[in-house]
Simulated assay, not measured.
Amino acid sequence: MLNQVVKLTINGIEKEVYVRNAETLIHTLRHELGLMGAKPACNNGDCGACTVLVDGLPLNSCHTLTVENENRSITTIEGLTDTTIQERFIKNWAIQCGYCTPGFVLNSYALIETEPDADDATIDEWLDSNICRCTGYQEIKQTVKEVIQMRGTNE
């Protein structure tokens, strides 16, 4: 079978898409569903610009086939609208040109959800999977620390 219907849950909404078996998730998100947040860049899984969350964990959407993600929960940057991490990225200028920003925001969100007490080494390890060519990483790391601290004081 060269083409098939795949059921995907994206940002909490179930969608059916007709895809080629060899179609990557980033292609489906951008070209079939109009979700432009995941960015194509290196197309070999090295830069993180195409990061999405699959079942809550970061995944390079350029490196996975759409058909492999059926019956899994996919979150794109469009699904994190009005979240604290996204608001703090903007407030702290943890952005430059913005191309890599969705991947960083998603990865940071997953880090905070998975490791709510993350130390500096853990933050560095998680952020190593994303590359920014425009800025240093200090504002991004500070934003992650700030959101972790904010969550700790709210509990």
Score class of each variant (00 low, 15 high):
Gly45Pro: 03
Thr76Phe: 04
Asp119Trp: 00
Ile13Met: 08
Ile77Asp: 00
Asp119Glu: 07
Asn154Ile: 09
Ala110Arg: 00
Asn154Ser: 14
Glu125Gly: 10
Asn21Gly: 11
Pro116Thr: 07
Thr143Asp: 09
Met36Asp: 05
Arg72Lys: 15
Thr66Ala: 07
Pro58Lys: 09
Cys97His: 10
Thr81Phe: 02
Leu57Cys: 14
Lys39Arg: 12
Ile85Asp: 06
Val147His: 11
Ile131Cys: 03
Thr81Ile: 08
Gly152Ser: 12
Thr81Gly: 10
Lys7Cys: 02
Phe89Lys: 05
Glu78Tyr: 07
Thr84Trp: 02
Leu33Ser: 06
Glu70Phe: 00
Thr122Ala: 12
His63Cys: 15
Cys132Gln: 02
Pro102Val: 12
Ile112Tyr: 02
Ile26Gln: 01
Thr101Ala: 11
Thr24Ala: 00
Val17Met: 07
Tyr137Phe: 15
Glu87Ala: 14
Glu125Asn: 10
Ala22Asp: 15
Asp55Glu: 06
His63Phe: 11
Leu29Val: 02
Val52Met: 12
Gly98Arg: 04
Glu16His: 11
Asp128Pro: 01
Asp128Val: 08
Leu127Arg: 10
Gln142Lys: 15
Glu68Ser: 14
His31Pro: 01
Arg88Leu: 13
Leu106Tyr: 04
Asn11Ile: 08
Met36Leu: 15
Leu8Gly: 02
Thr135Ser: 12
Cys42Leu: 09
Leu80His: 11
Met1Arg: 08
Val5Glu: 13
Val6Phe: 05
Val54Arg: 10
Ile85Gln: 02
Ala94Glu: 05
Glu16Arg: 14
Glu146Ala: 12
Trp93Gly: 10
Thr28Asp: 06
Thr84Cys: 04
Thr76Tyr: 10
Ile74Gly: 01
Ala41Phe: 08
Asp120His: 11
Gly79Met: 00
Thr153Asp: 13
Gly136Asn: 09
Ser73Met: 09
Thr76Ser: 04
Ala49His: 01
Cys50Ser: 03
Thr101Phe: 07
Asp124Trp: 10
Glu14Phe: 01
Val67Thr: 13
Ile140Phe: 12
Glu113Tyr: 01
Val147Gln: 02
Ala22Lys: 13
Asn130Phe: 02
Thr101Met: 03
His63Met: 15
Val52Cys: 08
Pro58Thr: 10
Leu2His: 07
Gly103Asn: 00
Glu139Cys: 05
Asn43Thr: 14
Lys141Glu: 10
Leu2Ile: 09
Asp124Phe: 03
Val105Met: 11
Pro102Phe: 03
Ser61Cys: 01
Gly103Lys: 07
Gln138Glu: 13
Arg88His: 08
Ile10Val: 14
